[in-house]
Simulated assay, not measured.
Amino acid sequence: MKLIGSLASPYVRKVRIVMAEKKLDYALILENVWAPETTIQESNPLGKVPCLLMEDGLVMYDSRVIVEYLDTLTPVGKLIPANGRERAEVKCWEALADGIMDAAILVRLEKTQRAEAQQSDAWIARQMSKVSASLKSMSESLGESPFCTGNHLTLADISVACALGWLAFRFPEIDWRTDYPNLAKLFDKLSERPSFKDTVPE
């Protein structure tokens, strides 16, 4: 398998962590989708990463689709419950974490891809309110539990840590560590795992 992605993307990081936890072999192909010479649309018409290229020519895109498929390839380190409420709970955590990244990335793009005179303060505030509300919801749902769901690592924890790690990387002014020490405790614990150490955004 080949994974097209960047070292800064939190969505790519989520896939890379899942592949490491599942002990799956793959080749990482670095791609800057913002570069004029990018060829990402040859693989993904949406022009986004991550993009997974299978040996038989099948192409998968969207991190949520990719990680769900990867979790079926081997029983090692099962990350998504097979069915029922537990599965829905993990997927809701993933949706919330992805939503934080979606909103924060829109803010970053507004600030880096548009001229200052064209930037909308109201738009930025709207997106940042989603980030703030979601962090609060995550903290309240986690409480003092050691993991987001159940008693072992799941895709929920990976997704949350990828969102928090990207905020620390791109939005250091958001002091989620002080505001939500339980999230910081979870993040620090997960950051000791080799899969997280090897995928720190840069």
Rank of each mutant, 00 (worst) to 15 (best):
M138F: 10
G77I: 03
A20W: 06
V59Y: 03
F171T: 12
Y180M: 05
W34I: 02
T39R: 12
G150N: 07
I40Q: 01
D71L: 11
K2N: 11
V65Q: 07
M101F: 00
I124A: 09
I80W: 07
L79H: 04
P172C: 09
V18S: 12
C92Y: 11
S191C: 04
D198S: 15
S6D: 06
S132P: 01
W166A: 00
V49M: 06
C148M: 10
M54I: 00
K22L: 12
L109K: 09
D175A: 06
E37F: 03
V131K: 02
K2C: 03
L58A: 14
E37P: 01
D121S: 14
V18C: 11
L24R: 10
R85P: 00
L73H: 04
W176S: 01
M138N: 12
F147Y: 15
M128F: 06
A156H: 08
L46N: 13
S9P: 09
E31Q: 00
P36G: 03
V131N: 02
Y11H: 13
T149H: 04
I100Y: 01
S195A: 15
R177D: 11
M54P: 00
L106W: 00
S137C: 05
S139R: 06
M1G: 08
K197E: 15
L190Q: 03
I66H: 14
M19V: 09
A104M: 06
A82E: 12
G57P: 04
E94T: 05
A115S: 13
R126S: 15
S132L: 07
C51K: 01
T112D: 00
Q127P: 04
S43I: 06
Y180H: 15
E140N: 08
I124N: 03
H152M: 11
I17W: 00
L167P: 03
E173F: 14
N32L: 00
A168K: 14
N151M: 13
C162A: 08
D102L: 03
G165C: 07
V90M: 07
V12S: 09
E42N: 12
L183W: 03
K78P: 08
R126N: 12
T74W: 05
T199A: 07
P50S: 14
L30I: 08
E110H: 10
P10L: 09
S129D: 14
Q127G: 09
L153T: 12
V90R: 01
E116K: 15
K91W: 11
R16A: 10
T72C: 06
F187P: 03
Q118N: 14
E192A: 10
T178V: 10
S191H: 06
K111S: 01
L58M: 11
Q118M: 13
S159Q: 08
E140P: 01
V200K: 13
Q41K: 14
L106H: 04
G143Q: 07
P181H: 04
P146N: 07
K23Y: 10
K185C: 05
V131A: 05
Y26M: 09
G5S: 10
L183M: 06
A184P: 03
I105D: 05
V49R: 02
D175H: 06
L164V: 14
Y69M: 08
I66K: 11
V67R: 04
G47I: 02
N182E: 15
M19P: 08
R64S: 13
G47M: 02
V15R: 02
K130D: 00
D102F: 03
D157S: 11
G84D: 05
N182I: 06
